Amino acid sequence: MKYPIYLDYNATCPVDPRVLEAMLPYFTEHFGNAASRSHLLGWTAKDAVETAREQIAELLQASTKEIVFTSGATEANNLALKGVFESVFPQKNHIITVQTEHKAVLDVCLHLEKMGAETTFLQPDEFGSVTIEQIEEAIRPETFLISIMYANNEIGTIQEIEAIGTLAQKHKILFHSDATQAVGKVQIDVKAAKIDLLSLSGHKLYGPKGIGVLYINRNLKNQDLVAQMDGGKHERGFRSGTLNVPAIVGLGKACEIANAELLTESITLSKLRDCLEQGILSQIKGTKVNGNTNNRLPNLTNISFEGVDGELLLSSFRDIAVSSGSACTSASVEPSHVLKAIGVSDKLAYSSIRFSLGRFTNQEEIDFTIQYVKEVVETLRA
């Protein structure tokens, strides 16, 4: 086995070798600018981009014209929230979101509040879920956007996306979902879910870093979503800038692979995840799974360890690569905002570990991890 064993796939994934193989020619041989329409190199690049757009659209059950390339999900979230806000303000100014969203949504909402927006941050239950009743109760005449992530990055909870989409459509409110962790792990149909805007990032599904997508429902026009980057009218005017052709090709290939292997891979990962989870819970006392153990991502478990210093625990894991729910801000470590929102105490939040498995995880690594974690925890407790 190669150490450290990588169990932090929700942070980033290695590029799949098949993805890298598809990308390589576009760095040297087919290096043209996709916006160059006067020669073969430009045409080749443009064709490659359109092929990738088809591969991504197929995974989302969308149209190719609804795929807009960005530098990643953070930019896609910014474009979605800021772009819609600028199109409706001051007539409407209210956003509904959830306390457990990624900072790429929460921080945008806080920024927009300085511009005149108002945000309702819904309180999830102990499993990380929000109800349709909660959302409907929060709706006001000035509500213009509901932004709720498809699946949580720390605890894996999957929200009732189709029901939320139906509710939003009923009230004529746009629905945005940060699906960064869900794409490639669960089946997504943007039409069935009535999603207007959806964000994703390449490096979360075995593609390269620095490339993402904002799905924009074809019914939305430029006046409905104000571009945040000007300079060339690329991507139907929603996002200017020279396209990163090699990365786009890689993202397209990653989506094609995910589309073909999603079902079998999710079954394999859920079995490995359950094995890891049950092994830790049965062999280490004072452990608890955080979040929803029924409706969650197939590759993730978040476990609290009682009676252990969280920072010491994480630094003691030399042979496995995992992550804590904590986020570092201004050189001080704060407990995970996600775990705090679902009612986990600060003490337990500090000593919670996220194990996220992936395509290249195997049973031998899981067996080793169970025993390794047990030894480290018992040593620290002693």
Score class of each variant (00 low, 15 high):
Y3H: 13
L7K: 01
L7M: 15
N10S: 09
C13T: 15
D16M: 11
V19T: 04
V19R: 10
F27A: 02
H30G: 01
A34F: 06
S36W: 11
S38H: 09
G42N: 03
G42H: 05
R53Y: 08
I56G: 05
K65T: 12
L79K: 01
L79C: 01
A80L: 10
G83E: 15
P90Y: 11
Q91R: 12
Q91E: 15
N93W: 07
N93P: 06
H94C: 03
T97P: 09
V98D: 00
K103R: 04
G116F: 07
T120C: 10
F121M: 12
F127P: 00
G128F: 05
T131Y: 08
A138W: 00
I148H: 05
M149D: 03
N153R: 14
I158S: 00
E160S: 09
E160T: 09
L167T: 04
A179P: 05
S199E: 02
L200V: 13
K209C: 04
I216L: 08
L220C: 07
K221L: 12
A227G: 00
G232Y: 13
K233M: 14
H234Y: 09
R236A: 15
R239K: 14
G241A: 07
L243G: 06
V249R: 01
V249K: 00
A254W: 01
I257S: 05
I267M: 07
S270R: 12
L272Y: 04
R273C: 07
C275D: 01
S282W: 07
N290K: 03
N290F: 12
N290P: 03
G291K: 10
T293D: 09
T293C: 11
N294E: 15
N294M: 07
R296H: 15
D309M: 05
G310F: 04
E311V: 06
E311R: 14
L313A: 02
I320M: 06
A321V: 13
V333G: 03
P335A: 09
H337C: 04
A349F: 07
G358V: 07
R359Q: 06
F360S: 06
F360P: 06
Q363C: 03
E364K: 14
E364T: 14
E364V: 15
T369Q: 00
V373P: 05
K374A: 09
